[in-house]
Design a protein around this nucleic acid. Structure first.
Lengths: 122, 122, 122, 122
DNA sequence: GTGGTCTAGACCACG
DNA sequence: GTGGTCTAGACCACA
């Protein structure tokens, strides 16, 4: 799985990393139970600091996308963590819907766009 | 229109403000051509810093939600600003879709959720 | 309020700090709504690194003992965070009870000890 | 006696093991004079490393919960080890009491919880 | 002036 | 060999 970091982006590096790992899980490139690269190796591969990778991994643990196995390092999971992720998703969708409406997008157009993006994740 | 700021949120205040004004426009509480409160008054009403309100207004101008009018102050608009907003919307939806897939949500469930949120904006 | 850090202790510094702040809140030395020293100043005062203080503050936020106010820095709170603290407390007490029983302590003696410690916090 | 190890817990495995053996003694499932499984067998049964089991056993010896017998291996004991365990117990209870106070728990409620946990150990 | 992010590099605990 | 902890010091975002 290929990860691309843009150090120029206003989006924090650890968040870019977090999002791309979520994409990886969503698209089936990362399967539950599978180990992901150790912090230090991924940091070296991406040319970023290990603390930055660590922060992304920690976030993903809290959100339930990863678990730290004391013997195998970080492992992909599917558990829900806590209920926060649901609230977060709803909040993001509400904002997207509001922006779409401002741009004059009708419900049908909005849903088409949602569907398109859902399928794009593959 | 009521605006609620949470100074304890990790979301920057100027962004909360920006988002709530977008909601206001999307929901029809703010109509194109209508003036919105001058920076100083809104800052005083919300108990926040002038710079913070100014940053939100500037953002909204760049995105095309507001235009500055020398005589009427900031006025609600509907122009497209630049094409960034479209890219931003797509990016947000892709991420939401990915998170939904990770949570095991099927296309139908995801679209239902999208529809729900679209209608919630009213 | 006086904070004492033992850099020799096997207990991580950030955890010592976290615990002492909890004591401070429990004993009424720190009152809800009150600001606590900024990360950098506390770090300087204690002669430790700001990241270490930051970790303690972040923990306390997650547990609901602090909230980050974007205008005033870290502020003492009393909210529950999530339900984890209850489980954590129960787990700690179960372990303490087991150790007490191993040492041949009867229920009465154990409860006396608990009472003693409760009142010691003052 | 059943021992459950969670390799995904932030609590070190050797500590989980140590705690569960303490529970076993406290609850009467392990009686003084009784032998506990040899390191190698327990490690194999639990699917964990030899060193890990060894570390737990060593800890329990130092604390006086076990004694090493050349012929019978590790044997359950009740001696006091050194006075550290008392200090440790007090420290844990003080912290629990402080956390309970922060959560607004009165003395009565706290003692009820302590009693509940004491009896739960059975 | 506050916390947030990132880097570089060290040592230790765990398994 | 893994993650956890800690340090030192820099720059930036926010208010």
């Amino acid at each position: 799985m290929i990860i691309q970091i843009d150090v120029q982006s206003p989006e924090p590096i650890y968040e870019q990393l977090r999002n791309q790992i979520v994409f990886g899980i969503a698209s089936g490139q990362l399967l539950p139970g599978e180990s992901i690269p150790p912090i230090r190796r991924l940091a070296a591969d991406l040319g970023i600091n290990l603390h930055t990778v660590n922060k992304a991994y920690t976030m993903l643990c809290v959100e339930g996308y990863l678990v730290m196995d004391r013997r195998k390092g970080a492992v992909v999971s599917v558990s829900d963590g806590n209920g926060d992720s649901e609230r977060k998703l709803t909040k993001a969708l509400t904002l997207s819907a509001a922006e779409a409406r401002c741009k004059g997008m009708e419900l049908d157009a909005f849903l088409s766009l949602c569907k398109l993006n859902y399928e794009k994740v593959k």
